[in-house]
């Protein structure tokens, strides 16, 4: 009497496949060996989405052209986008003006660099919504239609605050790491503390760990949190959110939860303060 069922494939093939996959997985997690390949695949799929979206948009526009108010609607849309662009650009220009007044000698170099900066406005191409809502990796892709060369780790802002930094560029897309990504650290301050806030891996949340014996700490829920400017990347005193919870995590440590001001899901245009760059 047979004690086992028949088998189709020798275990050798599966073992080879298993170990090959394990090697690829290890090298990707540890060394990021396939990051460019994955970026290329992401960019390609975004291109495909854009082309298909473009086709769909063309078809819908064809039908739409039969309506009398077509031009009016398009003009209205363009004006709305311009308003959004102006609003986004206006935020950083106002910040620059404030910096000029406030910051003294030791920050002159920073001011001059800000004044020489080019502000580029990009439209969002995609947000990795699945990971954004559940997991640790929070990234968005911006559409770099003008092929402007972009440096890494440049501040990115949207709405009325910063939201992250550029991470990489793939084809015509700029990958942006959001503050809420667990691998991102942002130097922040409030009226009573300075700390390095790390992303929580949850939408619009970052957190700081503080020494519980810190007598200076008198913040309360709802207090505003600003960039400290200590990292040398972000200009200081830009409001980035507010304290939404204060939790005791151990005998000596307190976790300050900060809810960010800008929701990336609500923003269409993102600004990047670039250095003087040459167009490709």
């Amino acid at each position: 009497m047979a004690t086992s069922t028949p088998k189709y494939t020798p275990v050798r093939h599966y073992a080879i496949g298993f170990f090959l996959s394990a090697i690829l997985l290890y090298s990707d997690i540890t060394y990021g060996a396939f990051t460019p390949l994955r970026g290329l695949a992401n960019a390609s799929s975004l291109y495909a989405q854009m082309i298909s979206n473009g086709l769909l948009e063309n078809i819908s526009n064809t039908f739409y052209s039969f309506q009398k108010n077509r031009n009016l609607v398009i003009e209205n849309k363009e004006l709305q986008e311009q308003i959004l662009q102006i609003r986004t650009r206006d935020f950083i220009e106002r910040k620059n003006s404030q910096e000029k007044i406030k910051i003294i000698d030791f920050q002159k170099e920073l001011i001059s660099s800000l004044n020489n900066n080019n502000i580029h406005i990009y439209k969002i191409a995609s947000i990795d919504l699945r990971n954004y809502l559940c997991c640790s990796t929070h990234r968005i892709f911006l559409q770099n239609t003008k092929n402007v060369s972009m440096e890494r780790n440049v501040p990115v802002f949207a709405g009325t605050s910063f939201i992250g930094q550029t991470k990489d560029t793939f084809l015509d897309f700029i990958e942006v790491i959001l503050f809420s990504d667990t691998s991102h650290v942002l130097p922040v301050k409030s009226n009573f503390f300075y700390c390095d806030a790390r992303g929580k891996g949850k939408p619009m949340l970052i957190s700081c760990l503080l020494d519980q014996n810190n007598a200076d700490f008198q913040d309360q829920i709802g207090d505003k949190v600003y960039t400290s400017g200590l990292g040398g990347i972000f200009s200081k005193d830009v409001e980035i959110g507010f304290i939404s919870a204060i939790n005791t995590v151990s005998i000596n440590e307190t976790e300050i939860l900060i809810t960010l001001k800008t929701n990336p899901l609500n923003e269409i245009f993102y600004g990047v303060i670039g250095k003087e760059t040459d167009e490709i």
Partner: peptide, 28 residues
């Protein structure tokens, strides 16, 4: 892995392992 995952190899390893188990007990 290329189009839907954050790392290369994760789905590969699981698909190969699951495929093996299914092949092993397919008649059961």
């Amino acid at each position: 892995d290329l189009f839907f995952s954050q790392v290369i190899g994760f789905n590969m390893i699981f698909f190969v392992a699951t495929s093996y188990v299914i092949h092993l007990y397919v008649f059961r």
